[in-house]
Amino acid sequence: MEGRVMANQAPVLLVEDNPDDEALALRALKKNHIPNEVVVARDGVEALDYLFGTGRFAGRDLRKAPPVVLLDLKLPKIDGLEVLRRLRADPRTHTQPVVILTTSNEYRDLHTSYALHANSYIRKPVDFNEFTQMLGEVAHYWLSLNEPPPPAPAA
């Protein structure tokens, strides 16, 4: 039980390359009193480094998996769908809760995200107040209502 509380309190991973959107998201989370630390990855490689404990995150304790990953789709280096594909292909992360958070309204993105078992797909509202409210709801859902999967056993 203690492990689960820990999981909920672990940092949230926000994968976002646009500095304005990042600032907006951090502000929205703060405004909604989300207590979790937020780690920001600015491209797909950084996101994978965090989740697999490689690169600048070498040695990170992988048992502290984010209770949710907020994943943009259009990203430099490795795009969001490829990040999701790699998470689902690895036993350490294949059940990691991932919410796609995107402005894309392309059918292909929606379909592929669900085909790769994204837990949820949310379109970013353009309006600031709507965005703040939406992100608050999303964060509360995944941080205080949803029960995250238990950490994968250490390899």
């Binding site: 059918y107 929606l110 379909h111 669900y114 949820s120 797909y121 949310i122 379109r123 939406m134 709801e137 999303v138």
Partner: peptide, 8 residues
Amino acid sequence: LVLNEAPP
């Protein structure tokens, strides 16, 4: 029902 975009 409101926030999530349902699969196609």
